[in-house]
Amino acid sequence: MADPSSLGLIAKAAVTALSDERLRKGIGWTLVAILSPFILIIVIIVSLLSGTTNHNNNALDLSFNDSLISNKIPEEYREHIEDMRSSFIILDNKIEEKNSQMEEGDGLDSIRVKAIFYSLYFGENQPSNIDKAKYVDCFVGYEERTRTLTDDEGNEYEEVYEVAIPITNLTEIYKNIENTMGKTVSYEDMANANEIYYRIKYGSPAPNEGDDFEEWLDWSQGLTAEELEELYNDLPNSDKGVRIVQLAMTRLGDPYSQEKRGQGRYTDCSYLTMWSYRQIGITIPATAAEQARFCVKKKITVAKKDLVPGDLVFWSHKPNGRFMNITHVGIYAGGGKVIDASYSKGKVVYRNLFDSNKQVLYARPHILK
């Protein structure tokens, strides 16, 4: 479905055209008469889509909060909100029960538990009837431990007991939900849950993509002219992939920003790859996950052993609900090196091809015309 904001811009531009006397005369009243009904339809669609979005946002806020449900909320939303509130009360009780089985200050993230539940079950028939104990159990593992106790006569003895351990790996949690609850979890479900979690916990949208993780090795930036020349000489000649690498190298040291990408020298991982390819006339999507999906659909993926300069390398470091849970993309530079925009370093860097166990896809868009 079209993005309401883009339709809104179209409608605004069209209405402006109708209200401009000179423009009306330029295009002619006949054309205006033909276009007017379509303009009105666009305006109506935008209004409806905007209203739906507002209802969804209100349903989310009201489900997580105890504020009064307005009479303006449609009845179908009201019923789902009330049922979700009832579900959350039961979930909170089950979470507390599970936390009581933990040690060392461990505890479940109740917002995460409820955000995933909301994503999976809001809108279904009576989620309050779902077995909440089984659901919450998907978020914990168990471990046997030994402790020393003293009996009434002062004798010490060893006791083996079981303690609950919170699971922090979302992939494991989702697998548990599928196996235990018999609920298929889609990429869209994961993305929605992540968005809900960030909105409720932090009051902000979830981060889109990046590489905010620990294992960074052998990164560099700001190569000297001599070093760049040496790298260029090591690359094959007359090849699109080589040109992409050279273009990406012109961005070494450029600042990282998702919000400002494309403004001045700012870039993020997927904008760097998109920009580099665009310079040689090849258009790829705007995010890492969609670039990966695009390559799979075009059947231009390659094996790691066949990587050549200019190929794309995709990583999945954590579930984010997007295609293959892709979180990062970089340009293979040859010789086991990669050029990518690093979130943690705040700039475009040239380094060893890192985290082999997190690389999930390799592709060659530069073979496209």
Rank of each mutant, 00 (worst) to 15 (best):
M1P: 05
S6C: 03
A11L: 03
A11S: 11
A13Y: 01
A17K: 01
A17P: 00
D20P: 00
D20E: 08
I39E: 00
I45H: 03
V46G: 07
L49Q: 14
N54R: 15
N57Q: 15
N57R: 14
L60G: 13
D61L: 14
D61W: 07
F64N: 10
F64K: 07
E75N: 10
H80D: 15
E82K: 10
R85K: 12
S87D: 03
I90V: 11
N93W: 03
E96P: 02
N99A: 02
M102F: 12
G105W: 09
S110Q: 06
V113K: 06
S119A: 14
S119E: 01
S119L: 01
L120H: 05
L120R: 10
Q126K: 15
S128V: 04
Y142A: 13
E144F: 03
L149V: 14
D151K: 05
D152H: 04
G154P: 01
N155G: 07
E159L: 10
E162G: 00
Y174V: 12
K175N: 09
E178S: 13
G182Q: 02
G182Y: 10
S186C: 02
E188K: 14
A191P: 00
Y197C: 03
R199W: 09
R199V: 01
I200R: 06
K201V: 00
E209N: 00
F213C: 03
D218E: 13
S220R: 11
Q221I: 06
E230S: 03
Y232G: 07
D239F: 01
K240D: 09
V242M: 05
K260G: 04
S276P: 04
I282D: 02
T283E: 09
A292T: 07
K304V: 12
D306P: 02
L307T: 08
R322K: 08
V329I: 11
Y332W: 05
Y332Q: 06
Y332E: 04
K337W: 02
V338L: 05
S342V: 09
R351Q: 15
L353G: 06
F354H: 13
F354S: 13
S356H: 09
V360D: 11
V360G: 08
